[in-house]
Design a protein around this nucleic acid. Structure first.
Length: 219
DNA sequence: GACCAGGCACATC
DNA sequence: GATGTGCATGGT
């Protein structure tokens, strides 16, 4: 068993099944994935709550909403001008792809959906994979800044690894199991928020141990 | 008041 | 191809 696989067990012992992603519907999960970019989840919940009050958590309603209405609703999640455009471009794609049917997305292979999502300006690999894994139950492994920090500080990866390389290392270290993919990322974010911020470099499951290099740059 | 958040795109070197 | 910068509110 690899260190990366054992780390999953250590985290699971501490956190259990976090039942990610929080959200009532796949569509809400998709919106949350875009709104949470570089933003605290608390602020995203406010934005989603505002959209819910306006009845905009359904694809057709959001597609037909005015930009100004969306902008004010998502203001608490920050970057609201940029994110309004991102939501608009995402909705245009969804409308073009399936006429806004979430269910109909199941007809398309994961590779095609990922390629499509990545071609939307404002949706990068992490956001695309959040959508694929948590909203559409596709077998992709999501990595983020915490994943990089934790893996780097444990010495599992070189500093110059890219997104796909990092995701592949984790995916190859664990069994093929979507529920593990979902909970591993969830637990990494949970432990990251508490123990692996830029200036709080203590690992949750290695008590008292700092994973910072003795010197040099770190993330 | 400083620092940071469940990123991404684009400019510049 | 690496590095820097804008985007912006709100929590700690």
């Amino acid at each position: 068993m690899t260190e990366i696989r054992r780390f999953y067990d250590s985290l699971f012992e501490r956190y259990g099944d976090l039942r990610w992603w929080p959200g009532e519907t796949p569509f809400e999960i998709m919106l949350g994935a875009i709104l949470t970019q570089n933003t605290n989840w608390v602020n995203v919940e406010k934005a989603l709550s505002n959209l819910a009050k306006l009845g905009l958590l359904s694809p057709h309603e959001l597609l037909n909403a005015d930009d100004e209405v969306i902008r004010e609703a998502i203001r608490p999640s920050g970057y609201f001008n940029q994110k309004t455009l991102k939501l608009r471009r995402f909705m245009d794609w969804l409308n073009y792809k399936t006429e806004c049917s979430i269910d109909a997305l199941s007809m398309f292979p994961t590779e095609e959906l990922r390629y499509d999502l990545l071609s939307i300006r404002g949706i990068g690999p992490e956001t695309a994979d959040d959508i694929l894994l948590y909203a559409l139950d596709r077998p992709v492994f999501v990595v983020d800044a915490y994943t990089f920090r934790i893996a780097y500080r444990h010495g599992w990866i070189p500093q110059n690894i890219d997104y796909d390389g990092l995701a592949e290392i984790f995916r190859a270290s664990i069994e093929y199991d979507i529920s593990i993919y979902k909970n591993y990322h969830a637990m990494i974010v949970e432990t990251g928020k508490n123990f692996c911020r830029k200036k709080a470099p203590i690992c949750a499951v290695c008590p008292g141990k700092s994973h910072l290099p003795e010197s040099g740059p770190y993330e």
